[in-house]
């Protein structure tokens, strides 16, 4: 049996682009290339109905998805109330609601 020394070996937090499967991320960007134009300003999150009351952070979730980090993204995006305020504000004109629906469709399995 494995010995118990009273601690575990921590798993790395690193986003490892070599190990991540970027297939879904590539598909998402191909379908909505404007998502790449995000400059990380955070206006979407600042105005977010859900984000003001939960841990939901649209900017972070879609950035992680673009890096191939899909775990939990679907559940996070379920918090979106689809109010549309973020799309109204985005300075890069990104169809944020479209992004949310697309990622959810693509990552339904995750």
């Amino acid at each position: 049996m494995a010995l118990n020394f009273g601690y575990n070996i921590s798993k790395p937090r690193v986003i490892d682009i070599d190990r991540n499967n970027l297939r879904k991320s590539v598909e998402i960007i191909r379908e909505l290339p404007e998502l790449q134009a995000c400059i990380g300003c955070g206006t979407c999150t600042a105005s977010c109905t859900a984000g003001n009351l939960t841990s939901f952070n649209f900017r972070k979730v879609h950035t992680l998805v673009r890096r191939g980090e899909y775990q939990g993204a679907y559940e996070e995006l379920n918090k979106c109330m689809l109010c549309g305020k973020c799309r109204l504000l985005c300075p890069r004109g990104i169809n944020t609601r479209g992004v949310i629906m697309l990622i959810k469709r693509k990552l339904g399995d995750f």
Partner: peptide, 10 residues
């Protein structure tokens, strides 16, 4: 500190 050894060994 024993509890911290997880990220030390990692």
């Amino acid at each position: 500190v024993q509890a911290n050894r997880g990220y030390s060994i990692a």
